[in-house]
């Protein structure tokens, strides 16, 4: 039991389960899953499906943060990729053909990879502070997306594109398989090869890892390229979900939610050790929390405060200082010692 509690995923997992329980108690409908048109349907399924864009973005963000970096441009990259892909489909003679959609997605993600190279170049070669380097694209990217769509919301009708976000495979949302595949590939590459260790080494001590022969430049550059590519795919899913390229709203503030998800999952913003499983749980917590706001009927004016309060709670239950205080409290009670001066460390 105590080993379970000490596991780094225990508290994030606990928070997620607690939210699901809270929703189910408030409205038992929450957990109900029915079959509709041969596919599973229900609030948990919606959460798995709607998680896709944030999941991809947070996955890339985890790697970037592990190298002591940050990528603020992901939301803007989403907007650019969606704008590029949908403009291609909109301008094509056969918007409904699988070929057109595949090309559009490839070009959209390709442009995002190039934007990732740009970020990585600024950070790893020119050594610009990541927050500033990616801020450039965060602001410029949305402008580029607006230029591509001419300031309008580009709406398309295309069944293959619709399938990306709204289609089903084996009764489950296709978008769910996209993020599961992305998580699996990144986990395999990072954890089954030395890349993960090297990434963490760069994040823990760049200078020491350089002296040890780690090519930090390439590794850092690579994480921004991965982050850009994943954000590009997220942009395609976002656009597919609404069947439109909304350059103003696509991926707005997602960079901050992705950072939040990474932190909720137990990865430190100081870089170094990272947890992909933690990030997955972090994203699911945020998505479930958004459903919670709807299910509990929290009013629009109060929902940001509610959201923040829950986030603070989740962060607090993970904090070592809080654990220590809780242990002290329990020990004091069981030992029946009437007073320990505040601030005294109890020997462990």
């Amino acid at each position: 039991m105590s080993r379970l509690i000490k596991h780094h995923l225990f508290w994030p997992g606990f928070a997620l389960v607690a939210l699901v329980v809270l929703n189910t108690v408030a409205r038992p409908r929450f957990i109900e899953i029915s079959v509709q048109h041969g596919a599973l349907y229900g609030a948990p399924i919606d959460i798995l499906r709607n998680s896709a864009p944030m999941m991809l973005v947070a996955l890339g963000m985890t790697l970037v943060i592990a190298t002591r970096g940050i990528d603020l441009s992901v939301g803007a990259v989403m907007a650019v990729s969606g704008a590029v892909a949908l403009t291609i489909i909109d301008g094509s003679d056969s918007p409904g053909s699988v070929g057109t959609v595949l090309i559009a997605i490839l070009v959209g993600v390709g442009v995002s990879l190039i934007l990732g190279v740009w970020n990585g170049f600024l950070v790893s070669v020119l050594k610009i502070q990541p927050i500033i380097a990616t801020l450039v694209l965060m602001m410029a990217g949305r402008g580029v997306a607006l230029l591509i769509t001419d300031g309008f919301i580009t709406t398309v009708t295309s069944d293959p594109l619709k399938y990306v976000a709204s289609g089903h495979l084996l009764g489950l949302p296709f978008a769910f398989f996209i993020w599961v595949a992305a998580v699996a590939v990144v986990s395999l590459v990072e954890r089954r090869t030395a890349l993960g260790v090297l990434t963490e080494a760069v994040g823990i001590n760049p200078e020491a890892s350089r002296l040890a022969g780690v090519r930090a430049t390439g590794i850092i550059l690579g994480t921004y390229v991965v982050s850009g590519g994943l954000a590009g795919m997220a942009g395609v899913i976002y656009s597919s979900n609404i069947m439109a390229a909304d350059a103003n709203a696509a991926g707005e503030l997602i960079e901050l939610y992705a950072i939040l998800a990474v932190v909720l999952g137990g990865t430190s913003l100081a870089g170094g050790k990272f947890s992909i499983a933690g990030t997955v749980i972090g994203v699911l917590i945020i998505q479930t929390l958004e459903s919670t706001i709807l299910f509990l009927g929290v009013s629009s004016a109060q929902s940001p405060v509610f959201f923040a309060a829950v986030v603070v709670l989740v962060v607090l239950i993970q904090a070592p200082a809080v654990h220590r205080a809780a242990r002290q409290f329990v020990q004091r009670r069981s030992a029946n010692v009437p007073d320990i001066t505040p601030g005294t460390e109890v020997a462990r």
Binding site: R29, A43, D46, Y238, I242, A249, E290, F295, S300
Partner: peptide
């Protein structure tokens, strides 16, 4: 029920999905 969708398509879709799950 009433909830903000931030004037966006994505917001409108997500909130409506939630309402449909909540009330059927």
């Amino acid at each position: 029920d009433s909830q903000t969708g931030d004037f966006t398509r994505d917001g409108g879709k997500k909130v409506m999905e939630g309402f449909l799950q909540k009330y059927g």
